[in-house]
Design a protein around this nucleic acid. Sequence first.
DNA 1: CTACAATACATACAATGATACAATTAGTAC
DNA 2: GTACTAATTGTATCATTGTATGTATTGTAG
Lengths: 140, 140
Amino acid sequence: MAEKNLTLQLDFHSGFPIYTQIVNQIQSQLANGILKPGDQLPTVRALASELRVNFNTVARAYRILDEARIISTQQGRGTYIIEIPPPEVTEKLRQDSLSELTKRYVGEAFRLGFSEREVSQMVKDTLKSWKDAKQVKDEE
Amino acid sequence: MAEKNLTLQLDFHSGFPIYTQIVNQIQSQLANGILKPGDQLPTVRALASELRVNFNTVARAYRILDEARIISTQQGRGTYIIEIPPPEVTEKLRQDSLSELTKRYVGEAFRLGFSEREVSQMVKDTLKSWKDAKQVKDEE
DNA sequence: CTACAATACATACAATGATACAATTAGTAC
DNA sequence: GTACTAATTGTATCATTGTATGTATTGTAG
């Protein structure tokens, strides 16, 4: 499961952007079981070389897939199909997962000796600064 | 003497560099007494093996901590928590560690698609129920 | 034609990994 | 104890991988 050859077929005259074609075909191959969770995708440069396009174009496709939680790109390491492909989770499962995540966080914070007040305040501050940071670079 | 197992939790798709996560978590554990002055940290290779990362990544984290006068790295000997931690930075370390922990939590929650409101509410609820319920479970 | 947006590319950068090296320690033979 | 060798530890350097930012090209509306 080292390296998938990822035979993609690009059509340069179809009118569809290359990065879109890459995105769609990877999604398709995942849906059809050609790609499986945990599989490592070619590096942006390797795939770009094979497809005869600029590696930034591949990187753009990977970035879209990453934001869609389909793959996980890790600088300096590589790109992988995400382990737990996000299925259609129900709202209950959604809440449960947040609850679990929060319990782990609060438990860890208390284990480290922080007070309820400290935790509460830090969450508030972090949420605020996170939102501020997002507003700067978000344009969607 | 004191050989710490150093249970660190890395998140490879959090967006935060691995070496930064290592730095922050060691700071955190020192600030909260899990690590103590004089303690020997795992070798760069041992910790790297446990975390499934390259040992240079651990070395980079150690180097940063060394430059911050938090640990002492000695070629051929090992790395140790510095004997006399500057007291004026203790509280800062504590705050930094909570900040880092919180950032990881919030980042993960957002990555899973939860809103600021949901996160805020869940933290509030979790803190409340935590206080209400006596912890029956022992320390882990 | 001009203006604008989208796309693809070029370049510099940051994070991680691989490899060879230097310093120290621990044995081991004498 | 000394001298030698091997193992262990951190260090230095470069390669590999993805990221960030700017630029050129293309298509299209006005």
